[in-house]
Simulated scan of single mutants.
Amino acid sequence: MPVGMRERDSRQVVVVTGASGGIGRATARAFAQRGAAVALLARGEAGLKAAAEDVEAAGGVALPIEVDVADQREVEAAAARVEDELGPIDVWVNDAFTSVFAPFMEIEPEEFRRVTEVSYLGYVFGTRAALRRMLPRDRGAIVQVGSALAYRGIPLQSAYCGAKHAIQGFNEALRAELLHDKSNVRVTMVQMPAVNTPQFDWVLSRLGRHAQPVPPIYQPEVAARAVVYAADHPKRREYWVGASTVGTLVADKFVPGLLDRYLAKTGYDSQQTSQRRDPRQPRNLWEPADEDRDYGAHGDFDDRSSRRSPQVWASQHHGLIAAAGAGLVALAAGAVLARRH
């Protein structure tokens, strides 16, 4: 009997790309805790096996599939397998990525192309595979895992920032098309802050010191909860996670030139620890780093990472906050008028 045939009509079917580590791994666990059937798409055999064990331990059904999301045919074949073995896909989460930490002129053209193919076109191919199945049923949700860097580029991450900006534009265009067609299929995007993931141990780096997320840093479970919420409430065009994301996006909107100068001054040091980079560090650009070793969801920065983000609640309840703010303004205005009379 295919994986997931039991209760296939009652379980939510979720696909998560990049599911072997970081945000994708935490997101797969979060859906599994609700009893979902989770298809895990990633490259590394060891990471996939451990992610599947996580899902099963959390109460879900796991279907691990080795996929390079830069290959459209592999993504399409994976989507067909998911529907054959688990049932109709309800939620598709695009999260897979790779990157290079280096100044732009130290990134080779083929490396830049590879980052773009995985981190941008991987989202395009995943979205297309999901839509091919969701549109005829007129239901489903697609969640694009984004970043504050989808709006604001930073030094040493030109390839990654370019991909995230591209996803932002692609998602906005697609959303407008779905609205035009009055489709009940929804797309939404979750803009993430710096997250404590294993990427800093396996992304190709040419920095002198060990790469790190720009503080403040959040645990991947914070990001995962936001992704699950977005999948449940996909009518919102996007969600922001972390006060740092809000601060960055607001600053970029109103004082982008000042932010350019600030990042030019601080962006190099803030992305590196005081430790020298290990020249033997694995590189997952061309081959998976977790083929023989499971890195898990967390990186090396547990002692510096927050498990909560009050701003996430604010992003999810902006209507309530706006109403409360309007109420306070009305009360204040009433008090002023009362004094005058």
Rank of each mutant, 00 (worst) to 15 (best):
Glu7Asn: 15
Arg11Cys: 03
Val15His: 01
Ala19Asp: 04
Gly21Asp: 06
Gly24Leu: 11
Ala28Lys: 03
Arg29Leu: 12
Arg43Met: 04
Glu45Val: 04
Lys49Arg: 14
Glu66Leu: 04
Glu66Ala: 15
Val69His: 07
Ala70Ile: 03
Glu76Gln: 13
Asp84Asn: 11
Gly87Phe: 13
Trp92Cys: 03
Phe97Asp: 02
Ser99Pro: 01
Pro109Asn: 11
Val118Leu: 06
Val118Lys: 02
Tyr123Glu: 14
Tyr123Asn: 15
Ala129Leu: 02
Ala130Cys: 09
Leu135Tyr: 02
Leu135Gly: 02
Ile142Gly: 05
Val143Glu: 03
Gln144Asp: 08
Leu149Pro: 00
Arg152His: 13
Arg152Val: 15
Arg152Cys: 13
Ile154Pro: 04
His165Lys: 03
Gln168Pro: 00
Ala176Met: 12
His180Tyr: 15
Ser183Arg: 09
Asn184Met: 03
Thr197Gly: 08
Asp201Met: 14
His210Glu: 12
His210Cys: 00
Gln212Leu: 05
Tyr218Glu: 03
Arg225Val: 00
Tyr229Gln: 09
Gly242Pro: 07
Lys253Thr: 15
Leu258His: 04
Gln272Pro: 09
Thr273Ile: 09
Thr273Arg: 06
Gln281Ser: 09
Leu285Arg: 05
Asp292Met: 09
Asp300Asn: 11
Arg304Asp: 03
Ser306Ala: 15
Arg307Leu: 13
Arg307Gly: 13
Trp313Ser: 00
His318Lys: 07
Leu320Arg: 13
Leu320Asp: 10
Leu320Ser: 05
Ala324Trp: 13
Ala326Cys: 07
Ala326Phe: 01
Ala333Trp: 05
